[in-house]
Design a protein around this nucleic acid. Structure first.
Lengths: 125, 125
DNA sequence: TAACTGTATTATGTTATATAATACAGTTAA
DNA sequence: TTAACTGTATTATATAACATAATACAGTTA
């Protein structure tokens, strides 16, 4: 499914969060599809169940999944409104990095080329 | 000069590092110009001297400043070769965020517009 | 010499992260 | 009904990163 790097400075639960979030956004986990159980993931990735739980809880709070007592965790339907918040966040980050690039005197043409190129190469869907 | 947010999850020494790095890259601190002393900054920002020292040490290792025993810390001349490493780092981050945007189905035209806009608005120099 | 600088070390405290070990409750299939 | 799954919650423990505190020493400068 995916991997976590226990030596990374990024917390495991945050890596988990990002990975699952990505799988949902990319459509690899569809609406109402069940995720692996906490214990299953824990043993699969050799990570403590509590750590998985922390990631899942965050995913639930942020609207990516929903939990059913005794049944499991499932991918939520991503509504448009919510997705817009996501998009705004990405745009903000994008602006920051563009300023950073400008600071380093990277010409705008280079950035445009990079943008086109990266967008093309991005895995579709 | 700048501020640090002690409640941020970004370590103080890292905020210091970023702030000073930025001042140098933006040309607000010029080549061979002396930086405030460690103790001075420490009392100014009410941060422990050791924390400042950690930021300065990192800045020195990364080629932004040089230290003279008993004299102080000074901004280094940024050579082209080094700047290229910086640029590569920013480009990498840029690619990642563009993929993120694509994931959220932001059309490339929006990103192009955003790019032009952000680049224009960026404080010059 | 006094008052600055950088540098280094040791000790202490705090917080976030992660693990371990349980326990309890809901669901499901045999 | 029971066994084996699920989620949920709690308490305890360990560790590492971060930051502070308190010194000490060495080089520079007026």
């Amino acid at each position: 499914m995916f991997q976590v790097d226990i030596r990374s400075r990024i917390p495991i639960y945050e890596q988990m969060y990002e990975n699952i979030r990505r799988l949902i956004l990319e459509g690899h986990i569809k609406e109402d599809e069940q995720l692996p159980s906490i214990r299953e993931l824990a043993s699969l990735l050799t990570v403590n169940p509590n750590t998985i739980q922390k990631a899942f809880k965050q995913l639930e709070q942020d609207g990516y999944i929903y939990a059913l007592q005794g049944r499991g965790n499932f991918a939520k339907k991503l509504d448009v409104l919510y997705r817009n918040q996501e998009i705004e966040g990405v745009k903000k980050k994008l602006r920051e990095i563009i300023l950073e690039a400008k600071l380093l005197n990277v010409p705008i043409e280079s950035l445009m080329d990079l943008l086109k190129d990266a967008y093309k190469r991005g895995e579709s869907q």
